[in-house]
Design a protein around this nucleic acid. Structure first.
Lengths: 223, 223
DNA sequence: ATTCTCAATATTGTCAACAATCTTGAGAAC
DNA sequence: GTTCTCAAGATTGTTGACAATATTGAGAAT
């Protein structure tokens, strides 16, 4: 009857490590993921590696072909845009729910992030800004308290990390983005669900447009 | 250099069979999924059964606990509603895209389904109606040509099949539903994306409301 | 030089045995 | 009668060997 150690699910943990490796760029898109190599890299046995690959396949981060192994999934242009559009559809709903459910402490957290964002923009610090950006979206999800939506958003976003990086570095993008974020926070703090949804949509319209630019730039061989 | 048989992925196929078994009600929510039993039921080896369970866990149809095996996931009330809300967010977008992309042949297909729906309602045939309902939503997805959204919708809907059944049998529901569907189709055929999105939202607002009723009814022990 | 063949290698897929953990039920202790 | 103990059985987790398939590269044929 002891407090029993977590008893973590090994294959899920292996999958988490592999996910992190892929999203952090340790493996490139289309790169082969050879099971034997992953066994040593992830410090796991082959059965768990295979299960992890199956999960990440289901998740859309990896593609498997029978008898030919797994590769990091390479997104086509249209897939990248589709994913960004799906994210927009879900996250606008989340913004509305956050506005309906935010408490006083939640509001001050959000406003604090906006303050830090403005400082980061003033200091021309895109790395810090990118981190605050991620944190703001996470906080909004937490406030919305919609676990299903959060799960969907996490998988959608993990498929786009590489592009997100490039977008955050678009010249002038943070300066514009911080205004959009401030509008979202203002609407949430006012408890105005419709306004929060609209502000989030405006923001994510920009993100979708930027991804369109990014993929056409990539197609033109500029990356 | 021959045309090489598909070379189907066995674990994916096993997962598909198990998914079908769960969504069709062969296994009840919370029912234990013992690996040895699944080996005989699915005619597969344990390695593939375990991979299938991992995939369906990732998909949200199954829950696994370390050293305690897998069960059919039992949705809580809030989870069921969250899933319906997420579906609404995605499918309204799909309706808009379908309106923007529908061709003449697409329009006639959709209108044909509406005609059949009216006939099914007139004949008080909820089973046929339910089938047409599923078919209409599938056709709209096909027309929208958004593979990512279709994939998300498929997994979301698979988690709700049991509830969907009950809702289709709500007295008077088909008669109301057919009007909503006709409005969606009219907007799509008119190429009016905004109207299609609004009509789909109206329709799915009803679905969400019905799921709220269904879960509260279930909680009251009426099912 | 190019293409073809095919054996050697690399890699994935399957399987069964074993280990680790959990669950059950009969009997002991109270 | 109820609770506790713990051994037997049931189930999940891990490992290694083997089979099946794909890839590679050197040499043959043209």
């Amino acid at each position: 009857m002891e407090a029993h150690a977590p008893g973590r699910d090994v294959s899920a943990e292996v999958a988490a490590r592999l996910r992190e490796a892929i999203t952090s760029g340790r493996f490139m898109p289309n790169e082969r993921l050879v099971e034997a190599d992953l066994v040593t890299f992830l410090d796991a046995n082959r059965a768990n590696v295979r299960m992890a690959l199956a999960m990440l396949d289901q998740e859309g981060l990896v593609v498997r072909e029978p008898n030919r192994g797994a590769r990091v999934r390479l997104l086509s242009d249209v897939e990248a845009i589709e994913i960004a559009e799906a994210r927009r559809a879900i996250e606008t709903m989340v913004a509305r729910q956050a506005a309906e459910r935010a408490g006083d402490d939640d509001r001050s957290v959000l406003q604090g992030i906006i303050t830090d964002m403005k400082a980061a923009v003033a200091a021309s610090d895109p790395v810090t800004y990118s981190r605050l950006n991620a944190r703001l979206h996470r906080e909004i999800q937490r406030i919305a308290a919609n676990a299903t939506a959060s799960r969907l958003l996490q998988t959608l976003r993990s498929q786009l990390v590489r592009l997100q990086y490039q977008i955050a570095l678009f010249p002038g993008r943070p300066a514009q983005s911080v205004v959009e974020h401030a509008n979202i926070v203002a609407a949430i703090c006012a408890g105005d669900g419709a306004a929060a949804e609209a502000a989030m949509r405006t923001h994510l319209d920009q993100v979708v447009a930027n991804i369109r630019s990014a993929v056409t730039a990539a197609r033109a061989g500029m990356l």
